[in-house]
Write a protein that binds this DNA or RNA. Structure first.
Lengths: 176, 176
DNA sequence: CGCGGCGATGTCAGGCTATGTCATCACTGT
DNA sequence: ACAGTGATGACATAGCCTGACATCGCCGCG
């Protein structure tokens, strides 16, 4: 993170990172699949939080209820584990580089896929679950990008609920 | 495409592609930014179609109307320019490789961004436009993945309308 | 205590992607 | 004929990533 913030992602070499960490380049690649992965360590854990929230929801919950549950627990967890400042720096690095943006999108897609699978496991129809999975991630990432804004004071969970409501409005209008 | 389908994306080298095309490796990189980009040539044109559809919509169209307009024109264009068979092969190659999936996500994100910008240009509020842009792409890609299925007989445009309606149902339920 | 397995790391070699630089060549308008 | 322009080839090189093998410290076991 230090090197990326200093020189930018592309200008930083793996050799440089390894050197700063006091290991060899080869060792670096034993810990991270590739250079970008450094910024996405622990992503599977967040995934697990979303999945568990869906699995642990009340048996009589509606699909929409499951979405809200996943978002609430997921949003709260992220807030706890990562400070807004750190999230902001990380975000600066990522948005400054296309390769990293790409990787982030992949991670979000995986999250979406995991949520979909969790919904299917609860008996939600395939197509619905797929759309719902996408929706959860859409709301999550949109809220996240607003949450890290310096002048934003609202809660991540609150922002997520707002986003969901906005989508509801958009799509309700469209069917008229 | 031939080489990718034969040996897979990773196994094919740029030297191989260039050789098959009768040019040097260096020349390959003058035409494509990187190895993945081969499969995404002409993506900006699709983007333009969506953007133009929004720009050219009736002045009194609602936001939801703009979304439908973009999806209808975009979906129809893709159907015309790319056969289902070709789209299927291309899709097989892409989904088989994570790097390519990554790149596709980036392209879709750019499409989303372009749609958002087009909406903003028509006076739609920033936040709404952003969500709507994501929504358009979500519906587009979901419909696309269903359209290329071998047993699917429906129209791409039809599938898009269906997806939009499904989302509407999902989010309407959630606000209750 | 000595020993062998095991996991993490270092070392070395090498392939592939991607870029910079310079030369060449065909084409074009004057 | 000539200079300009754009596409290509030839060459060199940095940097990413992987495979194969050696090394070292730790731990349990006899």
């Amino acid at each position: 993170m230090e090197l990326f913030a200093e020189d930018g992602f592309e200008a930083t070499t793996v050799a440089g990172i390894a050197g700063r960490a006091g290991v060899t380049e080869r060792t670096f690649f034993r810990h991270f699949a590739d250079k970008r992965e450094v910024l996405f360590a622990g992503e599977e854990q967040l995934e697990a939080v979303f999945v568990d929230a869906i699995a642990d929801a009340p048996a009589d919950a509606s699909v929409a209820g499951l979405l809200v549950a996943a978002l609430d627990v997921g949003g709260r967890t992220l807030q706890d584990v990562r400070s807004r400042d750190l999230a902001h720096v990380r975000n600066e690095i990522i948005t400054a580089n296309e390769q990293l943006r790409e990787r982030e999108l992949l991670k979000l897609a995986k999250l979406s896929h995991a949520v979909t699978a969790a919904l299917v496991a609860r008996g939600v129809a395939e197509v619905t679950a797929c759309l719902a999975g996408e929706l959860v991630v859409l709301v999550f990432k949109t809220a996240l990008s607003r949450w890290i804004a310096p002048d934003e004071t609202r809660d991540l969970v609150e922002l997520q609920r707002e986003g969901l409501a906005a989508i509801s409005g958009l799509t309700r209008a469209e069917t008229v």
